[in-house]
Structure formats: C-alpha cells, structure tokens
Computed example of a mutant assay.
Amino acid sequence: MKEKWASLKRYPVLVLFFLFIFSFMILDGLWPKRARSELERRDLKQFPKFSWSALFANEWTSDYAEYTKDQVVFRDGWIKLQSRSESLLFQKKEIGGALLGSENELFTKLFALKPGEEKQLAANTQILQNFIARHPGSATVLLAPSASLIYPERLPAGVPMVDEDAYLNDFFAALGAENCLDLRQAFLQNKAQKLYYDTDHHWTTEGGAYIAYQEFCRRQGFAPAQFAEEDFTSVPDFYGTTYAKCVLWNQLPDTLRYLDLPNQMTIWKSDGLGGWSAANPGTDAGTIGLYDLSKLGTTDKYAMFLYGNNSYTTIQGSGKGKLLVIKDSYANCLVPYLAQHYAQIGVIDPRGYGLPIDDLMEQEGYDEVLFVFNFQTFVTNKDLAFLYAALPEA
C-alpha cells in the first residue's frame, strides 16, 4: 500500500484531478434540485421518468443528459463564467443566442427562418386572411418590426440577419394594406427615441408602444392622449429576457416604465363549455388593476403588465365601443393606452385560449379586433388555429 501511495505521489496533478472529479460527483448528487432558474427565466429539466421503451429509443438518455446539464452544481456561476470568458477572452459578439450591439443593447439572433417557420408563417398568414374575409372592415393587424430591423447599424458587423423587411412586405401585401398597421416608417422616423429595451426584445412603454398607440389612433380617427414624462412610473434595474440568454457580465440595466391608470380588469377562466368565471388572484370583487406590482420585486418585471399572459381578460375602459385584442406579450404595455378610447377591451393570448373566436365576438359584442404580434414570435406561433373557420360559401 505504501508503495502504491509513493508511486501516486509522483503524479500529484493526476491525483488532484481524480479527487476533484470524485468530490464534484458527490457534491453534484447532493446539490438541491431546482424547478426554475430565475437567472435564465425558464423551467429546468427534472429527473426523467424511466421506461425501457424510452431507454431503447435513446429518449431517456437524451432527457437525462438535459437534466444533468440543467441541475449541475453552481449552474448560475458557470453561466456567468462562460459569459465573461466569451466576451472578454474571445471577444465574441454572439453569446447564447443574443447579439451584442454597439450601444449597450442586445439583439435577438435570427439569421434565417427554418423550413418549419416558413410553413408556420404561411399558415398563420392564411388564418388571418380567413378571419379578415369573415369579418371585413373590423380587423387591424399589427406585426411589429424587430429592433434589429430598425437599428441595423448597431448590429455586429457582417451578421447575416434574416431579411425581415422582405417578409413583412409579403405579409402586409397578402393581407391588404387596408387591414394592416405597418409601423416601420414611423419607427424609422423616431429611431432617435428609445423604442426598445436594451436587455429585452419588447418595445418600451414610453417609446415603441406609445408610437404604436398614436399610429393606431390616427388610423381609427381618435385623438391620441398626450402624456408627460412625470405621468410614467419608473422602475430601475430591469433585465429582460434577451439578457437572460447571455447573462452578459457588464450589461447595464434598463428602466421599465408604466402608466398608473385607474382602469380595472378581470381575468377569466373557461369551463370549456362556453361559460366563464372570474379567476383573479387575491380578490373577492373579481376585478384588479392593470398591473401586478408584486412582479417588480422579481427578475421577471415585465410580467407586471396585465398580470402576464392570461388566456382571456377584460378591461373596463373609459371610452365607447368594444375592442378585442389578440396578441403576444408585445401588446401588454400597449393595451393600457387603448383603454382610454373603448368602454371594454377583451384581451386574448392564444397560448392558453383555443376556443371558437366567432362565438366570443358575438356573445360579447366585439365589433373591432386588433392583432398585435412581433415578427420574430409570430413566425413560431402555433396557437392561432382557434381563429380559423371555413369561409362562407359564395
């Protein structure tokens, strides 16, 4: 035994390496498992359920590999270390799916649409064409341009970004200019303003969303409400979802702003049979304000708008008529502006809805519909089938 130990002492680096691996394995096994990473803003893989069929199909091993990656000890620290090394040592301009802009902003990487995304874009366009044909004159489609389209000069040199301009041209032509709200020209004319967050893919409340609101009002014949800087409540230290992709070590935070409006809203839960019941958290009256202020103390501050992405919500407005907004999260900070002009606004997030839309429109009396999506999320949206119905026979 002494001879073996003496021989091992001649290879101290090898001994230390195996001790490190052994200790790391033990620590990794004892390390508490997490359901969610607040740093990455996503749920983490849990231990996969074992079955012989999944093992032989190589599905279980794949799931287990993802589980071990997500639950590795000191995961947040490894992510931050990787970000530092890639940005400092290797001077990379793309980290974790985010592109590092020239003026402290992070852009979402999208070099080309995959074949499946091309098909999804065509399918979603067809669904909207079908809806417009069933409800002529009542729909407005807003497909918001991405920050990379408005600020191409701030992208890393030579990155082959997708030709979003060409896709938007084809999309608006397919639906008809009279049914669309194209914001590209208005955004380009106002690009000196802060239209988008630096750390998030969303537009800012006081910048991009406000210009979108003004353009919609002009289209509808409304006089847009005017707001001064002091009308907005500011929330510092906002790091958005694009930051969560790369966790850039020296990234400066954004300031999130919102209008403290008195409008009330109701979150509804469907029974699946056409009936609805109020499903608001922590309220007996069934109504709540427009903002979940508890989210401002979390990493997901943007979720404070409209209490996140609920399947169906109604808002008591201050105007006349009823507007139905079908949207992704881009619309969450836009909708409060619109509450100044309608008596009721219905808000549908397709990710949790899925019921026949025509039935709801008839029951609730919605005579105007506004679609609000961002281009980069619209091409992957697979939840618009509830909008589709057979065209009426001629």
Rank of each mutant, 00 (worst) to 15 (best):
E40D: 12
L30P: 06
K93G: 03
F187S: 03
T68S: 12
Y258M: 06
W60R: 02
A212V: 03
A394T: 12
P281N: 05
G317M: 07
A390T: 12
D271G: 04
D358I: 08
T266S: 11
V15H: 03
L89F: 05
D328L: 02
A122G: 04
A389D: 15
R42Q: 10
F22C: 12
P281T: 07
Y330W: 14
G240Y: 01
D198H: 13
L39D: 02
E368R: 14
W60L: 10
N263E: 15
D359C: 09
A331W: 04
G317P: 08
I345L: 14
K4S: 14
D28C: 08
E117N: 05
L183N: 03
L100A: 02
P350T: 10
D70K: 09
Q91Y: 02
G289I: 13
F375A: 05
T199A: 14
T204H: 08
Y196G: 05
Q71H: 11
A123R: 05
E362F: 11
T233I: 14
L16K: 10
E153H: 06
R154N: 11
K245P: 08
N250E: 10
L256V: 00
F56T: 15
G289Q: 05
F50D: 11
F216C: 05
A174D: 12
L8F: 15
A228W: 00
E153A: 15
A65S: 11
F20C: 12
S51C: 08
N179V: 09
Y151Q: 03
E103R: 15
K69F: 10
Q363C: 07
K320S: 08
D200Q: 08
L88V: 00
Y67F: 14
H202E: 09
Q251W: 00
Y243H: 05
V247F: 01
D43W: 12
S37Q: 04
Q71T: 07
K119N: 11
W276L: 11
S318G: 10
T287F: 06
N169I: 12
K114H: 08
A331R: 06
L183G: 02
F20Y: 12
A278R: 13
D358N: 13
E38L: 10
Q185H: 13
L27H: 09
L19I: 08
V335E: 00
W31R: 07
D63G: 04
L338Q: 05
Y302T: 03
L370S: 03
W268D: 00
G346R: 00
S318N: 13
L355I: 04
E178T: 02
